[in-house]
């Protein structure tokens, strides 16, 4: 895991999450901005998957449990598509809030993944 990339990803997911929460509570139904922010969060997560596959091979192994790391990463990768699917089916203001919740959950999970990679002792 690359530290600055993880922090940037947490920042993007927090901003995307808060944006969706505000838009949803203001009564907006899911629009391109909401789905676009989810897509950006997902794109960065896929970048994280590639990083996590390559990093151990180039001398950047995790200090903690690789299994726990991957459980978090796979769960996080599933969240934005699930929220987007919800938004496409539901199309109400609360679907926008759900998208925000998903992005904030991704932020927490990426932060936890960084801890597992750099702080946690196996």
């Amino acid at each position: 895991m690359i530290e600055w990339f993880a922090y940037a990803q947490v920042a993007v997911a927090v901003v995307a999450g808060l944006l969706c929460l505000v838009l949803g509570l203001a009564g907006r139904v899911p629009n391109d901005l909401v789905l676009g922010s989810l897509a950006l969060v997902e794109l960065l997560l896929i970048g994280q998957v590639v990083t996590a596959l390559v990093a151990p091979a180039v001398g950047n192994p995790p200090t903690g449990s690789l299994l726990e790391f991957w459980v978090y990463l796979v769960s996080a990768v599933l969240l934005p598509p699930a929220a987007a699917l919800w938004a496409l089916i539901d199309r109400g203001r609360w679907a926008t809030v759900v998208c925000g919740v998903a992005s904030l959950a991704v932020a927490v999970m990426v932060y936890r993944m960084l801890q597992i990679w750099t702080v946690q002792q196996a």
Partner: peptide, 12 residues
């Protein structure tokens, strides 16, 4: 309504 958000948080 907001119950959907509750379900989503429970799911997560």
């Amino acid at each position: 309504g907001v119950g959907r958000v509750l379900v989503a948080v429970y799911g997560v």
